[in-house]
Nucleic acid binder design. Structure first.
Length: 566
RNA sequence: GCACCCGUAGUUCAACUGGAUAGAGCGUCUGGCUUCGGACCAGAAGGUUGUAGGUUCGAGUCCUGCCGGGUGCACCA
């Protein structure tokens, strides 16, 4: 579509139109495929948009414009009818393995921070959605040529760790007994220990002090807790690794709060001297209120760094380690105001970060409907529990198909597609109401539906045998085929748009669903293998091969692998 | 109390960034088809885009007020 628009723009420039030339979609294919609205010209030319459209259409009709079959003025619009044959020829010669990839981001290095669970705590639903979103964003970035560094920042110090440690030490014999048990059980123990500590913390002033003591022990690296701390931390991290690998993520660098808190203190002290921070009630704060934001505490009155201070040091490390062009924080949208304040302070403290820090706000994940599932999962619904439930459901559905036995690989891929597509189908900042039935269903807007389309196409291609030769010319192109050609030609624009601010993989998921629907419309009207004419058969095989390629490519950007059969 | 985000079909979401008759999935109703893969398809019903104004050729989209929701605002992460 980019090439098509370029040709149209050139033609318009040729007849004296300057400035921003943009096109708009046409509501109905019967009146055209692409429109040029003439409203903005009306002011300059002191004439009605309709008159201008008419005169432009006449002028343009004199010219031979690539991809254009016919031009008509329709009210204030100049409508272009595109030539499906020319598009097919152009498209089929361009659909190679790199169709939809770009080099526009070449030379740019993006650090993407996502995942970010807290060691010794559960990997909950929010983390799951975040991981899936972040991974997709990384792929979308790589696809335009950017170098992507995947980083994961995890809180291995702080009050939540103190709570866990208090709980563990209160149950220390049990802790030692768990050393021999499977990872899953060890992690579940940690979860209980955390809850135990958190409860204790809430009981009263004295109990609170018990827990705070552990916080200080962690910060001062007290020898009495070190062995237990290290072990519990490593259990958690191994457990997170199993989830990352299951969902196809692999981090280049894990950052921990324990490695930034000291530097955080130093940076804030430095900033205090420079007048960037001020003292207030014994704490050190950044007066965001002077910059249309709100005030935040960076060092508490005991001199310990808050999350804010640690984030400053982390940012400094990002830049020291990778000199990124952009650091994208994939984090829940409730942190929006927080990031504004931190970025503002950071910009003054570490000027090279200015304009390079970006918060990508994610929506919340809520489970919808299914009461059975909610109760089975209990109050604490973890991310891996949801993964398990999806797998179980998919297995249930697929084992109902007695004609076929499915491999574990296929079951896994279908499950993953269900989960990931559900997370990525709407805008990143939109909350996701996860519905099990619609997510695993093969009809409707779901991952399995898209995989099914690809499997069908691949099945047809297998039956067709060798389709290495392509055909781009045919006597007549049907309306369904034309729609597919137009949609396929849009794909590179879509991948480019997804990689631009606001970064959003859902642009791709929506496109793929739309393409799949157009394929279905085509498929039920146009026979492929049984096409009467050999030319038509080859043309359609080439067409569906192109669709399969784009679908596979696009799904990969979402982190979804396709299957040959399902 | 202040700030930010959001109100679109019964429901879950779109709407190419201000353009033509606001579109899809699910659900509902009607019909088709026993397979180039039926885990299917077609058609229909369903809307005063929360509300009242304003801006202009033109508003779901921009501005203001109100109503309703979410989130964040000092030593948690």
């Amino acid at each position: 579509m980019h090439d098509i628009r370029k040709a149209l723009k050139a033609a318009l420039t040729d007849i004296g139109i300057d400035g921003d030339i943009s096109f708009s979609p046409v509501p109905n294919p019967e009146i055209g495929d692409l429109a040029f609205p003439c409203f903005s010209l009306a002011k300059v030319r002191q004439s009605s948009p309709a008159d201008i459209a008419l005169s432009l259409a006449t002028d343009l009709s004199q010219k031979d414009i690539p991809f254009v079959l016919n031009i008509q003025a329709a009210g204030p619009y100049v409508n272009f009818f595109l030539d499906p044959q020319a598009i097919a020829t152009h498209l089929f010669s361009h659909i190679t393995s790199s169709y939809g990839s770009h080099k526009t981001g070449k030379g740019e290095r993006f650090v993407v921070e996502y995942g970010c669970p807290n060691p010794m705590k559960a990997f909950h639903l929010g983390h799951l959605k975040n991981l899936i979103t972040g991974e997709s964003v990384c792929r979308v970035f790589s696809n335009v040529g950017r170098e992507v560094i995947r980083v994961n920042y995890q809180g291995d110090v702080g009050m939540h760790i103190a709570k866990s440690l208090w709980g563990i030490f209160d149950w220390i014999d049990e802790f030692h007994a768990y050393k021999e048990k499977p990872l899953q059980e060890r992690v579940e123990f940690l979860g209980r220990a955390y809850a135990h500590g958190a409860q204790h913390f809430e009981k009263g002033v004295k109990e609170k002090e018990d827990v705070v003591l552990y916080n200080e022990k962690v910060y001062t690296k007290d020898a009495s807790i070190q062995e237990v701390y290290d072990l519990a931390r490593s259990w958690s991290l191994s457990y997170f690794d199993t989830i990352y690998s299951k969902l196809g993520s692999c981090f280049d660098r894990l950052y921990f709060e324990s490695e930034v808190f000291e530097r955080g203190v130093a940076l804030v002290s430095e900033g205090l001297e420079k007048g960037i921070f001020t003292k207030s009630d014994g704490a050190v704060i950044y007066e965001g209120s002077k910059h249309d934001l709100h005030d935040r505490v960076f060092l508490n009155s005991k001199g310990f760094p808050t999350y804010e201070a640690k984030d400053l040091a982390l940012a400094e490390m990002h830049f020291a380690d990778f000199s990124p062009h952009k650091v994208v924080h994939v984090v829940g949208k409730e942190q929006t105001e927080y990031f504004k304040v931190v970025f503002s302070a950071l910009s003054q403290l570490v000027p090279q970060t200015t304009g390079k820090e970006y918060h990508l706000p994610g929506g919340y994940l809520q489970l919808k409907g299914d009461k059975k599932m909610s109760s089975r999962l209990g109050n604490i619904i973890t991310g891996d529990a949801l993964i398990f439930e999806v797998e179980k459901k998919v297995r249930e559905i697929m084992s109902g198909d007695l004609d076929r036995a499915y491999s574990e690989d296929v079951l896994q891929k279908v499950s993953t597609s269900a989960l990931k597509y559900a997370m990525l189908k709407s805008d990143v900042s939109q909350d996701v109401a996860f519905d099990m039935e619609t997510s695993v269903s093969t009809s409707g807007e779901s991952g399995p539906y898209l995989l099914y389309i690809v499997a069908r196409i691949n099945s047809i291609l297998r039956k067709a045998g060798d389709v290495s030769s392509i055909s781009d010319s045919v006597e007549e192109i049907t309306v369904e085929e034309k729609q597919l050609l137009l949609k396929l030609s849009r794909y590179p624009d879509v991948t480019l748009a997804a990689a631009a601010i606001p970064y959003d993989p859902s642009k791709i998921s929506r496109y793929l669903f739309d393409l799949a629907q157009s394929f279905n419309a085509f498929y039920h009207v146009c026979p492929v293998l049984q096409a009467k004419d050999a030319d038509v058969r080859l043309f359609r095989l080439t067409l569906i091969k192109a669709i399969s390629h784009v679908m596979t490519h696009g799904l990969a950007l979402l982190g979804i692998e396709t299957v040959e059969e399902m």
